[in-house]
Amino acid sequence: MTVRVDGVDYEFSSLEEAVRFALKMAKSKGAEVQLHNGTFHVE
């Protein structure tokens, strides 16, 4: 599972870890999280 934040990809071994990271980053940026074909994008 890959989480992309500001064009940088972060790899996670589990969906749970990836979701937690994506939500944490989105909250800190006041951004939204989108899921596309198994890849999260924080914008």
Rank of each mutant, 00 (worst) to 15 (best):
T39I: 15
E11M: 13
L35P: 03
G38D: 08
R4I: 07
K29W: 08
E17G: 02
K24D: 13
K24W: 11
D9M: 08
M1T: 10
K24I: 12
H36M: 11
H36C: 15
S13K: 09
R20H: 07
V3A: 01
F21P: 03
L35G: 06
A31D: 04
L15S: 05
L23I: 14
V5Y: 06
S28F: 11
T39A: 14
E43G: 14
H41V: 15
E16I: 11
K27D: 09
E16C: 15
N37C: 15
V3T: 01
V3Y: 02
S13M: 08
M1E: 01
L15F: 12
E17W: 02
S14I: 03
S14D: 06
D6L: 05
S28L: 14
R20G: 04
D9E: 09
G38K: 07
E11H: 14
V19M: 13
R4V: 09
V33W: 03
Y10R: 01
N37F: 08
S28A: 13
E11D: 07
K29G: 08
F40R: 11
T2A: 05
E43M: 13
Q34S: 13
A26G: 04
K29I: 13
S28V: 14
L15T: 08
Y10A: 00
G30K: 08
R4T: 11
F12G: 00
A22W: 05
V19T: 04
A22F: 08
S13E: 10
E32W: 13
V3R: 00
Y10P: 00
L15R: 10
E32R: 14
H36T: 07
V33K: 03
M1K: 06
A26H: 04
V5D: 00
D6V: 01
L15D: 01
V3P: 00
Y10W: 06
V3S: 00
K29M: 14
A26D: 02
M25T: 05
Y10K: 01
L35K: 05
A31C: 14
Y10H: 04
T39L: 11
E17F: 02
V3E: 00
E16G: 06
V5S: 02
V19W: 15
H36E: 05
F21S: 01
T2D: 01
H41A: 04
T2W: 14
A22D: 00
S14K: 03
F40M: 14
R20S: 09
H41G: 08
A22C: 14
D6H: 05
V42I: 08
K27W: 10
A26I: 08
N37H: 07
F21I: 01
T39M: 14
V33S: 03
K29H: 14
G38A: 03
K27Y: 11
G30N: 09
F12A: 00
L35N: 04
Y10V: 02
L35A: 04
S14L: 02
N37I: 10
F40I: 15
V5G: 00
S14M: 02
D9K: 07
S14Y: 02
V42A: 06
V19I: 13
S14H: 03
S13Q: 08
G38Y: 09
V42W: 08
N37L: 10
F21H: 02
D9C: 15
E16H: 06
D6M: 07
E11G: 06
Q34L: 12
E17T: 02
E43H: 10
V8F: 07
R4E: 04
V3Q: 00
M25F: 04
V42G: 11
S13I: 07
N37E: 11
G38H: 08
A26L: 08
G30A: 07
K24E: 14
V33Y: 02
M25G: 01
F21M: 01
K27A: 12
R20T: 07
G7C: 15
K29Q: 10
E11P: 08
R4N: 06
F40H: 11
G38S: 04
G38R: 03
T2F: 13
K24F: 12
K24G: 09
M25D: 01
V8A: 04
S28P: 02
V42N: 10
F40Y: 07
F21L: 02
T2N: 05
H36Q: 07
E43V: 15
T39R: 14
R20V: 07
E32P: 06
A26N: 03
F12D: 00
A22H: 01
D6T: 02
V19D: 02
F21Q: 01
A22I: 08
R20K: 11
E16T: 07
F21C: 12
Y10F: 07
R20M: 09
K27H: 10
M1G: 06
K27Q: 12
L15C: 15
A31F: 10
T2K: 11
L23N: 13
